[in-house]
Nucleic acid binder design. Structure first.
Lengths: 185, 185
DNA sequence: TGGTAAACATACCGGTCGGTATAGTGGCAG
DNA sequence: CTGCCACTATACCGACCGGTATGTTTACCA
């Protein structure tokens, strides 16, 4: 509908396409975003999009992989391996809180993809990879796989609640609950 | 695509449309199901659909309301107000486990709707109503609003994990974790 | 029996979808 | 200078989208 000003024209066509795809898929939804809109936002034609990606499905999978790498990079930044477990668990939630405060939170991209394109096998593989990431990280932090699994579920549930209510409060409550799970005593 | 055998022709056109909408919206997705397919499955024409519903958006909202009422009815069935809190919390998860065993689990319809049609205000209102239901029920059961909130998040997170992994195991783990939250001692 | 309302079948509307084809253009490397 | 390749622009494909308009048939009820 709205032509949406193209993002900065830096980088190769491929990079711009992936950046445009991320913005549109994440903010507007995957099924509701057409390839035409992505190409336009990248300042590129549809033909160029199909020169760089086999299909929309592949573009979706690569968008998700980019999100996965970004979340890994972010974890490296905010996680302090020398901090106590409670602080490290809290950091996971505080990262989401910061995102919400900045106003660019639109729910968990992996949960959304699992709902929107469950038939895209490549995309679903990335979704599972992300879940394994979170549980793995939390297992390393807490030293307890069962706690890690529970906290991961709280984490996902909190993001849904935050999205549905349009409020950051669920994240704060989830953080408290998750930290409370550690060393019940 | 596939013409899908029409469901039993019992009831009024409106009832059949809602039943068809539930099956298709829930199993195939909301945005990926066209009004034509719903009408066909109900054994009815598109004109009849629009005689009974103002728009697709309204049909979506009414489908969700139906799901809400069904989940309330189910809760009335499986919940025993005289049972101990742990059993009542467990019952919530065991209901999901039964659904998965029967093979007709496709994720939480409310979470899915929040992702697929966040712009449908009527639908989103039902989503929030459902969340309030769950938290309210759990608050009554546990006598503790904070625990109720945490368990609700575990509940939602577990359904995502179950959907993404195609496995009922996350629900069982979530049940254990939720029950473990009660009277930590 | 006659009237009414609902559901019928069909066709159409403008728009968008993912994807392809064709032809031309610019810059860079040999 | 030339050949090549990524890119451009544009137009098209068949399919489907949500929604509307038409006239006909069916069934029930006064």
């Amino acid at each position: 509908m709205v032509e949406t000003a193209p993002t900065a024209k830096r980088g190769t066509a491929r990079e711009r396409l992936l950046r445009a795809a991320e913005e549109l898929f994440y903010c507007e939804g995957i099924n509701t975003t057409g390839v035409e809109a992505i190409a336009a936002r990248a300042g590129v034609t549809k033909a160029t999009l199909y020169n760089n990606f086999r299909s929309k499905d592949q573009l979706v999978a690569e968008y998700l992989r980019g999100k996965l790498e970004k979340s890994r990079a972010a974890a490296h930044e905010y996680d302090d391996p020398h901090a106590p477990a409670s602080a490290r668990v809290a950091a996971l939630f505080e990262d989401v809180e910061r995102t919400i405060e900045q106003g660019d939170f639109h729910g968990c991209p992996f949960t959304k993809a699992a709902v929107e394109v469950p038939g895209n096998a490549d995309a679903m593989a990335v979704v599972r990879e992300h879940y394994a990431d979170i549980v793995g990280h939390l297992t390393a932090v807490t030293g307890d796989a069962a706690s890690a699994d529970t906290i991961a579920m709280i984490y996902d549930g909190a993001m849904i609640a935050a999205k549905a209510s349009g409020d950051a409060a669920p994240i704060a409550r989830a953080k408290t609950a998750a930290v409370g799970l550690l060393d019940p005593r």
